[in-house]
């Protein structure tokens, strides 16, 4: 018994727990926000904001000189809103298609971000690697310490606390604004005719997206977060029959992706964040295959389908 305990390193176990907890929260927050991106057909805006957030983080750090949590959050939210606003303005003023204006804005912001990272590599605690993969494996080592550096209590990883705060904000926002978000998402013109300010809710959602991506940044990097935003939510969209079930399903898929991804990463000795994103995709593929098979089965066994599915 005692020998087993000795070979089983307790601190390793704690590290894994921190990593898994952080990844779960990241995936859950992304899935919740992603549901609305999918339903509002703004998947590409999610892509754009997650890229731009890099610039927000770098600028916030360079201007303020600290990497305090709230500075990062503020920088990311501002740049996220600027991305959304600039894409829309460009679309309106220059009459470019909206996806083209999104593409122009986010590639520019992301490029500036990458250039700044390369320029100040020594000063910023960031490099090209972590922009891409995030550093979820290192998350447990960057901890928040309460009180004195030497004597204070270690409260656990910084990234964990950040995503916990953001997850709470996302959850509360969705709970409180659920009915409005549903109406605005389902039928914008009805919402307008009921006197609801759809512009406000648009930017509200963009703020949530920016906050979620920046909180996920440490863990999964700027680009993989797109997979977590879009794929679980899209999988849930395939199955769900109400908004509530879609939200639950998206979260469930995201959690499955975390566990599966963690296992794959352990097995292949590869990057954890990338493996989680890949497993989200694999789960979606599996779901798609099952749906197609059941469609075939229904076609074959029932001459006339029992319930009419729009085709």
């Amino acid at each position: 018994m005692s020998t087993l305990f000795q070979s089983f390193n307790l601190s390793d176990w704690v590290l894994d727990l921190w990593i898994l907890a952080t990844a779960s929260l990241v995936a859950a927050a992304c899935a919740l926000v992603g549901v609305f991106l999918i339903l509002r057909r703004q998947a590409l805006m999610g892509d754009a904001i997650s890229h731009s957030v890099l610039l927000g983080i770098v600028l916030a750090y360079l201007i303020s000189g600290t990497n305090a949590l709230w500075v990062m959050l503020l920088g990311a939210v501002i740049i996220g809103l600027v991305t959304a606003w600039l894409s829309e303005t460009l679309h309106k003023v220059s009459r470019l298609q909206s996806d083209a204006s999104i593409g122009i804005v986010f590639t520019l912001f992301f490029s500036i971000g990458v250039i700044l990272v390369s320029l100040y590599t020594g000063q910023i605690d960031l490099d090209q690697e972590c922009v891409l993969y995030g550093e979820i494996a290192f998350v447990p080592f960057d901890t928040v310490i309460w009180g004195d550096m030497e004597t204070g209590t270690d409260l656990g990883p910084r990234a964990f606390w950040l995503i916990l705060i953001v997850f709470a904000v996302v959850l509360i926002s969705l709970l409180v604004g659920f009915e409005r978000l549903k109406t605005v998402t389902f039928h914008p013109s009805l919402a307008v005719s009921l006197g609801i300010n759809i512009t406000f809710w648009h930017y509200f959602l963009m703020t949530l997206v920016s906050m979620t991506t920046v909180a996920s940044f440490d863990a999964v990097g700027a680009i993989l977060v797109v997979a977590l935003l879009i794929i679980p939510a899209a999988t849930a969209y395939l199955l769900a029959r109400s908004l509530k079930t879609m939200l639950w399903l998206a979260v469930a898929y995201s959690q499955m992706a975390v566990w599966l991804g963690y296992a794959i990463a352990f097995w292949l000795n590869s990057a954890i964040a990338a493996a989680i994103a890949v497993s989200a995709g694999l789960l979606m593929g599996l779901t798609l295959v099952l749906i197609q098979l059941s469609k075939q089965y229904h076609k074959r066994t029932h001459a006339h389908p029992l319930r009419q599915i729009k085709d």
């Binding site: 549903k182 109406t183 389902f186 039928h187 609801i196 029959r241 079930t245």
Partner: peptide, 30 residues
């Protein structure tokens, strides 16, 4: 206002009752 049917995504995960309840949103705070 009753818009044209083509305007919305009929794949949206929502049931009939919830759609009708949306009509009450003008009276409700968010």
């Amino acid at each position: 206002y009753v818009p044209q049917r083509e305007e919305i995504d009929w794949d949206f995960p929502i049931n009939v009752m919830d759609v009708v309840l949306m009509g009450r949103h003008g009276q409700l705070k968010f």
